[in-house]
Design a protein around this nucleic acid. Sequence first.
DNA 1: ACTAGCGGGACGTCCCGTTGAT
DNA 2: ATCAACGGGACGTCCCGCTAGT
Lengths: 198, 198, 198, 198
Amino acid sequence: MTKGDITRETILEKAVTLFNVYGYSGTSLKDIMDATGLQKGGIYNHFESKEALAVAAFDYAMARISDLMVHAIRGKRDPLERLDALIGFFEGYFEKPPIEGGCMLLNTAVESDDAYPVLREHARHWMSQWRELIRRTVDRGIERGKMRPTLVPDEVATLVIGTLEGAMMLSKLYDDATHIDRAVVYLRQYVDTQVRQS
Amino acid sequence: MTKGDITRETILEKAVTLFNVYGYSGTSLKDIMDATGLQKGGIYNHFESKEALAVAAFDYAMARISDLMVHAIRGKRDPLERLDALIGFFEGYFEKPPIEGGCMLLNTAVESDDAYPVLREHARHWMSQWRELIRRTVDRGIERGKMRPTLVPDEVATLVIGTLEGAMMLSKLYDDATHIDRAVVYLRQYVDTQVRQS
Amino acid sequence: MTKGDITRETILEKAVTLFNVYGYSGTSLKDIMDATGLQKGGIYNHFESKEALAVAAFDYAMARISDLMVHAIRGKRDPLERLDALIGFFEGYFEKPPIEGGCMLLNTAVESDDAYPVLREHARHWMSQWRELIRRTVDRGIERGKMRPTLVPDEVATLVIGTLEGAMMLSKLYDDATHIDRAVVYLRQYVDTQVRQS
Amino acid sequence: MTKGDITRETILEKAVTLFNVYGYSGTSLKDIMDATGLQKGGIYNHFESKEALAVAAFDYAMARISDLMVHAIRGKRDPLERLDALIGFFEGYFEKPPIEGGCMLLNTAVESDDAYPVLREHARHWMSQWRELIRRTVDRGIERGKMRPTLVPDEVATLVIGTLEGAMMLSKLYDDATHIDRAVVYLRQYVDTQVRQS
DNA sequence: ACTAGCGGGACGTCCCGTTGAT
DNA sequence: ATCAACGGGACGTCCCGCTAGT
């Protein structure tokens, strides 16, 4: 990795946190300069605009989180176990989030939806990846007779993601892990009682 | 109502939409000037700062939405009916939201949590009102023997609100009502199968 | 004179000075409030707008100056004497102007010419009065054989007024009576050598 | 010339006209923004205040006019010819002024005298340059025996400048070139009969 | 005639995102 | 990668001319 690449990484690393905490509109290049110790020119050497940096930072963060999520289910062959792992991924997420500021996907989705089409496109992409992960797991679970055949995989995805993200919002708002913890507990019970083929 | 009051209302009306669509950071005073047709002096006569205006606009919007919600359960005496009405409140919310830009409480909570303490305080207030409404409904349901005594009212609130808000986020992100509709359907089933005393 | 009339006079008296010193654009209603000790309402009782007040103040001042000028030639029957008195009117005008700030006609003409049509109209009116006074004097001088028949009265007016006003400007600019004094001396010599029928 | 310098020139060019037509008090920064197509930042990058811009614009205009005046006498060795050229400079000045709005020196002198000390200082400077030009011409004329030795050069300057400026004011007020034309004709006759050594 | 308030808007500071010269 | 400069523009203060209520 060249020196330039390291600089690029540093910028991304710092920018990700700032964007996630203060939002895209709420973060200025000055903030990023201060955080990285670089000058504007140094930043513009690597990213052609603030928006390009924001997108890169978002993708950078989401790739990392996605890796973590994939890692969490690696080795788990049983679809029920996988689904459980995907839900359990959010245990401790509030206390020790991979990126300060809460769930970057939630934050970016909410800020970008009406105002920043490019960011929104990327948010959609990563959200779709996540949904796909859940859908495939449910598909396989049904195939293998572990999950109820009446389930609609995409509905499960909506429910799981929606519940987790909504609870994350509550936990962030109140600065209190209770909500996200409850969501995890509840979803596990939901899997147990309504997903598992008994 | 004096002329000044009308102007104040107009400012709030226009500002609410802008803040909800573009966020607090993403809305400039110029935007509000353009939307209201007023100049800076005309706005600062009524609000002492952009933040004060944002807070007033948020409260103004939440008061209206809160009214709608209260109206939706007015006359419903049965706690189960009330809970159903609170869930059903989100039917059609995406297609015809009271305020353009989606759920203002969600948007404000997400934007304010780390960066704007005053706004966050107000977001907490209204969220707590909403939770209280659900908690009291569940309390009464248990008292009257209509709901299971093992329920923890605040957990029900977390689940209902979390699921609805998370689904709203998904619907906004994809510009697709499916997600919020699924959440409503699911929560009704949840009430039927896990809340109702059978 | 009623109390109201006295107030009106006071406003005019104070406003005249302010307008003449700071100009129409450079004088605010606040300045006039401070100078008169009145509130805005008190001023607007007597004048319907700032412009109306400026026009009234200008006319008020010019009427007084015109009176002084007429007074200066009163009793002088000889056209040459009259012309001399009209020129001599500016002796001491710089040191003790009837209105602080220099020649109000000059000031108003210069400020109003491109920007304030109503004021300009009034400035034209009073300037025309002055020119007419000179023209008539020259006319009579020619009739009576005291002035050269080849003179064009309006040319004399242009020359006399122009020279005096230009010199007033110089004296104001340098805060030095020399220029206006020279103009008076010169014009008297001019009358002696080029106007008087010898 | 860098881009910034071009912008600076543009601002001066536009501001000069506005100030000369509407006066310093009568011209707002907004007017200058509109005329230049720049925003506030673009203007304040080049001038630290409205007053600094007004002063720069005035000097910019006066330098140009001064050049024109110097150009008008260039090559003329005979002091009488030079004086004639200085008077003749005002021929056509009203119909085609170098800067819209009339004589900027007159306008600035009249507006600034009581109210804007910095501008007044600059007006004095340029007026003194002009007077010096006339004084030196008369000095040389006397030295060379072309002009009467009894002349006081500064008196000639007062008379020439005063007459021209006063007549300019009349022409502007009435929107009629007659007055300034008469002044030029008269001053030439004055030079012929009272300045020239016969 | 006072008082408070209205909406308009001037001014200026500071920072924005961006560019270009070094 | 630095650094200075550029033009854009957000924010806020203060005062503008004017109105309305008392």
